[in-house]
């Protein structure tokens, strides 16, 4: 597994647990939103890091309004065609104001990295290092962005002709 975080290749120290796997005593782990909702206090391991994974069908509303304490939220894409993950990212960043790591894993394409980065995903998990290498330049595949999003807070028409093309 290879990770890009904040535009840099980096190590992944998180373990993604299936709902049936027992929590290890130590080390950062993620659990599904469903498990987090049903076991909540039972997942507390004296402050060991715990992240939450959202599938595309999960409602981001279920995170409540206090995800700031969550160190990692993972968008777990089951199908790259399922664009709900993009609206989840938008919700998590814009509506909840989440400032922690928002990561995507699973079935997404290199060609979606640009879009995902724009809606606020700052970490990408790949199956191998060469994928991660190829993804790096795609974070900036287009130098012009018409819309305001998580990366650019104003639409292009607010700064057109005043900013050079990146």
């Amino acid at each position: 597994m290879a990770l890009i975080k904040d535009g840099q290749p980096g190590p992944n120290d998180w373990q993604h647990l299936d709902d049936s796997e027992t929590l290890p005593a130590l080390g950062p782990v993620t659990v599904s939103l469903k498990r987090w909702q049903s076991q909540r206090d039972g997942l507390n391991r004296d402050g060991q890091p715990l992240g939450i994974r959202l599938e595309a069908s999960d409602s981001p509303e279920a995170l409540g309004d206090m995800p700031q304490e969550i160190p990692l939220i993972v968008l777990d894409m089951q199908a790259f065609t399922d664009g709900r993950s993009f609206s989840q990212a938008q919700w998590i960043r814009e509506r909840l104001g989440y400032a922690g790591e928002l990561r995507v894993r699973g079935d997404f394409l290199l060609d979606q990295v640009f879009y995902l980065a724009r809606v606020g995903v700052n970490a990408f998990e790949f199956s191998d290092a060469s994928q991660a290498q190829q993804a790096l330049p795609r974070l900036h595949e287009f130098s012009v962005r018409y819309q305001a999003a998580n990366d650019v807070k104003q639409p292009l028409y607010r700064y057109r002709n005043t900013a050079p093309i990146a």
Partner: peptide, 12 residues
């Protein structure tokens, strides 16, 4: 222009 490569609405 708004819809071109819209970051959120390209996989509807």
């Amino acid at each position: 222009q708004w819809s071109t490569f819209h970051p959120e609405f390209s996989f509807l």
